[in-house]
């Protein structure tokens, strides 16, 4: 069969909602698009551990400390499954990690914003994980099998994290004036970056068309962003918090909340490395990796020695 035939057959399978598995033939562009997206997702989980890790030592109760540790650990676990899913496409985890550390690969820009109060642990759960869920639930039906299956588990844990984050804010909003102010300040800082998590508007999204066609992606950036705003506004009302958008208004005809203009200049700057934490996050990741080099080498050297000893004792026997 020629490549053109194979490609045609592949597109038919995808159109019929059949899952693509690692050993199946797939167009190079499909493979590359998936590697880029899955790696970016894995990197986001791993870099995303850092802003929350900032508050482990200061968690205001033992219960919250345990929940936060467990949550960040889940993110590390998500990173692991996703790297494994990427490896099924024929790329090594270490290669992907090097691309992250060199700045070649991207991760979600939201993690380039700093965590400045305990309320941010709530806002990250509620808004950032909330936005992530909307992006990820459709991925459970993504055309690539291993990615889709990894996302089923990831989404379950993410929705737990979102409830946990919301509950942190609910406790603050039912608490003292200082606590409520902490929650409002946090929403003020995280709202717009959360909307940016859905990516550029459809008209400007360069990678979307192919992803939609091959069913890696099933909804457009703007569709998901709208869903997020519609779901979040009533939740903010329950908290008694004000969304920092003077243009936010309900459109009776469309039954949607219309939101103001997103600052795309800020978005592009943060993506390009100019966010307040871009350099700090990458430096921290690089330091952790570099400081761990001798540990990884020791583990490999020891494993090799053991293997060798086993073989030697077999020969003697």
């Amino acid at each position: 069969m020629t490549t053109i035939d194979l490609e045609e057959q592949f597109m038919k399978r995808v159109a019929a909602d059949e899952k693509v598995e690692p050993k199946d033939w797939m167009p190079e562009k499909y493979r590359k698009t998936l590697i880029r997206q899955i790696a970016q997702h894995a990197h986001s989980e791993v870099v995303g551990m850092l802003p929350e890790a900032n508050y482990i030592s200061r968690a205001p109760s033992l219960r919250r400390k345990a929940a936060l540790l467990a949550k960040i650990q889940d993110e590390g676990g998500h990173g692991l499954y996703l790297y494994c899913a990427a490896e099924t496409l024929g790329v090594e985890r270490d290669t992907l990690i090097e691309e992250l550390h060199s700045g070649k690969a991207k991760y979600s820009s939201i993690f380039n914003y700093p965590t400045l109060s305990w309320a941010d642990m709530g806002a990250i759960g509620w808004l950032v994980d909330g936005a992530a869920i909307l992006n990820q639930v459709p991925l459970c039906k993504c055309s690539y099998g291993p990615y889709a299956r990894a996302m089923v588990r990831v989404c379950k844990e993410e929705s737990f994290h979102q409830r946990q984050g919301y509950e942190i804010l609910l406790t603050l909003c039912n608490g003292s004036a200082d606590q409520k102010q902490m929650a409002q300040d946090s929403l003020n800082r995280w709202w717009w970056p959360s909307l940016m998590m859905f990516g550029p508007s459809d008209a400007d999204s360069t990678n979307s068309e192919y992803s939609m066609k091959t069913k890696i992606k099933r909804f457009s950036n703007d569709e998901l962003r709208q869903k997020f705003v519609d779901a979040t506004k009533p939740q903010a009302d329950i908290l008694g918090l004000t969304i920092p958008d003077p243009d936010l208004k309900f459109n009776e005809q469309t039954r949607h909340w219309e939101y103001g203009e997103i600052d795309w200049e800020e978005f592009h700057n943060v993506v390009q490395g100019n966010g307040v934490c871009n350099k700090i996050r990458l430096r921290e990741r690089n330091e952790a990796w570099d400081n761990g080099k001798w540990v990884r080498e020791a583990a490999t050297a020891y494993a090799e020695k053991r293997e060798q000893r086993k073989n030697e004792s077999k020969q003697v026997a």
């Binding site: 482990i56 540790l69 330091e287």
Partner: peptide
Amino acid sequence: GEWCGHGPVLEQDIALTNIALDVLGQA
């Protein structure tokens, strides 16, 4: 907990957090 997100490799990062959670639970 200070190691969380900074381990030498992801598996060990997770393992150490596990231990942190266990001893915190005991506490």
